[in-house]
Every structure is written in structure tokens, then in C-alpha cells.
Amino acid sequence: MLHAGTIDDALYGIATGINVHAIIADPQAFADAGVEMPDDTTWTWDDYEQIATDISAGSADGGYGVQNYSFIEPVLKIIARQKGEEVFTADGEVGVSAATVEEFFQRSVDLQSAGGEPDASVSTEIQAAGVEGSLPATNKGAMAWFWSNQLNAVQTASGRDLVLLRAPGESEFERTGEYFKPSMYYSVSAKSEHPEESQLLVDFPINSNAAGELILSDRGLPANTEVRAHVLPMLSDADKLSAEFVENLQDVVEDGTPVPPVGAGEVPDITSRINSDVLFGKITPAQAAEQWIDEVTKAIS
């Protein structure tokens, strides 16, 4: 997590807390469709597509296997890392290939065509409905991609016991793609007139059990593992599950992602807009990949 706030070997920010992007799954939806829960330590991307399609086919109430993942880019980051790439390099440039971006969009098209995820109109409505309007939250689907700290909100809305699954493909390639994401950072200006006091201010929420008891998981799971262990008994059942999930990934996550360059804040809007055009058939995944790389490159230039 220190690496996640480091640029050119200098530490610029300390993570307030951490999350991972993963799949929130509804075991009851799997059971109702007659589909077994996957072994998330070995399942592949093809397994993911097949399972989602089988769930849709087996759901008597018109439920879906999975919610569309390509309105935002965290899954692209995972896929890129599995292939030895990064969406952004340490030098602040686009580091993902057009082939990988095309594959990212193509899986959405394939799932839509096979019925594993909703059509373009329904997917757009679900995306706009937010966390509590997601497929698992409304008992209308078995899987959706979220940050791990969102499990509590989705589970509360669903009224069911949900679980977290690792990204597909983690054992399929030469390396893993999951990464720990800082919720946000604490930083101090180099021009601060009170550097020592500022250090104390940052030290308190990061390293104090007392602060941990107040913050709990509001800023993600505490990055300080000792504080995390201290507050664990105070967390909700869903947050405890998230904490265990993150803990189990410590030997799987190989490294952090480079600090994104200035302009990267435009990427979610770019991704969402292009994905909408893909889902509605206005452009092909190959065209989307070229457009995505072109627009993102301009945004960070």
C-alpha cells in the first residue's frame, strides 16, 4: 500500500484504507438456477461466461447471470495485469494494448448475445440505479462487480447472505491481476508551515486503534493490519467477510498499480460512454478499443 502512494521512489500519500475489485455473488441465485458456485481460485474467463449464461438459462424468474462490468475500468485493469500490462505505466502513459481493451469490451458483447447479462437498455438502467439497484441487491441476478467494501450495502439491500469471489483468470495466466486499491490518501503539502504537527495528524487515523474504532471501514479496510485486526470484532458481518477476503488475497496480489497520471479522472466517463456505444451496437469492440486508447491518451497528455 505504500507503493500505491509512491512516485519516483518518493512517498506522496498514505492510503486511508484499502479495497479490492471483486465479484459479489448470491449463492441462492446459483442454487435456484441449478448452477454450482465456482472455485474462484481456479476459474477462467471462459468459465465465468459459461456460468453466467447457465444461470440466466436456469433462472425461472428471468434472473440474469451477471451484471455488465464494462461501464467502468477496474476490471480492465485486472485483465491487463493478468496479461503483464498496466492501464497506466509508471511513466504516466497508457500501457494497455488495443487487443486487451478489445477483449474487455468483447466479453460484454458475448455475454449479452448469449443472454448471460441483460440487454443494452436494461444494463444502462441498472448501472444508473447504483449499488442498491444492482442485480444482486434486487435479487434479479447472481453476480456483479463491486469494490469489496460495498458488500455490506448490497447485502443489506438484498436481504440475503452474499459472498465475494476472486476475479476469473487468476490462475490462467503467468501472473495475477487483482490489486489493492487505496480508498483515498492522506497527504501533507511540502509547503506546510507545520510539518511536525501534520505528521502527527496523519499518523493518528492511520496508526491509532482509537481512530480505527471511530473510522471502522468508512474509508475502506484499515491499511494498517494491526489496526485492522483491532477493529475487526466491531465490524458488521459483511465487513468481516470483506476483511477476510482481502486478507486471503495478500499472497495472491503481486504488486500495486502505478499512481495514475493527471487526467486519469476522465477515464470513467470515457469508458462508460464508449461502453454504451458498444452495448447498443453503434461501434464494434475493436473500434471501441482504438477510440478508448485515443481518448484516454489525449486526456492524460
Rank of each mutant, 00 (worst) to 15 (best):
H3E: 15
G5W: 11
D8R: 12
L11K: 09
T16L: 03
T16G: 10
I18W: 03
V20K: 05
H21P: 09
I23N: 12
P27L: 10
Q28H: 10
D40T: 03
T41L: 06
W45L: 06
E49M: 13
E49W: 03
T53I: 12
G62W: 02
G63A: 11
Q67S: 14
N68P: 00
R81N: 07
R81V: 10
F88H: 00
T89D: 05
S97T: 14
A98C: 06
S108R: 08
G115P: 08
P118K: 10
P118L: 02
P118F: 04
V122G: 04
V122K: 15
I126W: 08
L135M: 00
P136A: 07
S148R: 00
Q150N: 13
A153M: 10
V154F: 01
D161F: 01
R166V: 00
E172I: 05
F173N: 12
S183K: 04
Y185F: 15
S189M: 09
F204G: 09
P205H: 07
A211M: 08
G212F: 05
G212D: 06
G220Q: 07
V231Y: 06
L232Q: 14
M234K: 14
S236W: 00
A238F: 08
D239T: 11
A243L: 00
V253Y: 08
E254H: 07
P260M: 06
P260W: 04
V267P: 01
N275K: 05
G281D: 05
K282V: 14
T284N: 02
T297F: 04
T297H: 11
I300L: 06
S301E: 15
